[in-house]
Design a protein around this nucleic acid. Sequence first.
DNA 1: ATGATACTTAAGTATGTTCTTAAGTGTTGA
DNA 2: TCAACACTTAAGAACATACTTAAGTATCAT
Lengths: 119, 119
Amino acid sequence: MHIKAVTLDRMFHALADPARRSMVDRLINGPATVSDLAKPLAMSLPAVVQHLAVLENSGLVKSEKTGRVRTCRIEPKALRTAEDWINERRTLWERRLDRLGEFLAEMGDSDKKLEEKKP
Amino acid sequence: MHIKAVTLDRMFHALADPARRSMVDRLINGPATVSDLAKPLAMSLPAVVQHLAVLENSGLVKSEKTGRVRTCRIEPKALRTAEDWINERRTLWERRLDRLGEFLAEMGDSDKKLEEKKP
DNA sequence: ATGATACTTAAGTATGTTCTTAAGTGTTGA
DNA sequence: TCAACACTTAAGAACATACTTAAGTATCAT
């Protein structure tokens, strides 16, 4: 299935920041509050809330507020979306190399120095 | 093996743009010149060159110039770095869920409504 | 009720990104 | 030689990001 471009934009953008990745790392170990996420980070709480907004907007994280505490958790399905995109490219690339290999084999071993070295 | 944060920053940032992903898609099918990469994109050539610089800076693409033509190709190992990061998180996540499952099993089926619904 | 807690909102600043156009460099084919 | 070609460089406009501090709003414990 094909993934919408905007979804991938937001997803990869969300992962392109060390603070946000560290928040994801924390959430891998289970749900956490906003303060929990902020504790190890060298920035103000509003900054963390903004990063959280980016993560939520990308679909990687969901959160809900109970009383005065907001609890955040990962959405592992979203992580998979990003992984799938990359995986699909790697697969296509390997398939191409296979075709190239077959082609070279058909040409015989004599003139193998056409255009590409071994991967 | 642990990946440097800056590397992941650059990698995910490079993938967070549709023009750059389309360039990666094109390169999956084999090497291409800068003009080849520019052809399907609705932007000026200098803009494409700038996107190419971002891709090269991330390590996802390498290029070399012969005469007046610059030929670009993917670096599949780099794609794998990003995939590995995500994969590691997914694995940790699943391992956590397993531990949680065992814990709930030990508690007996009676009071299973503790904190989490089914994944 | 009152103060502490846990965010939340607003506004501002500095920096980074993504494009543009215009002009320049080195290569190639007629 | 000289014009077309394939970039390359530079500079700037428009917008987005990543913070900050200051002030505000619920909730909770006492």
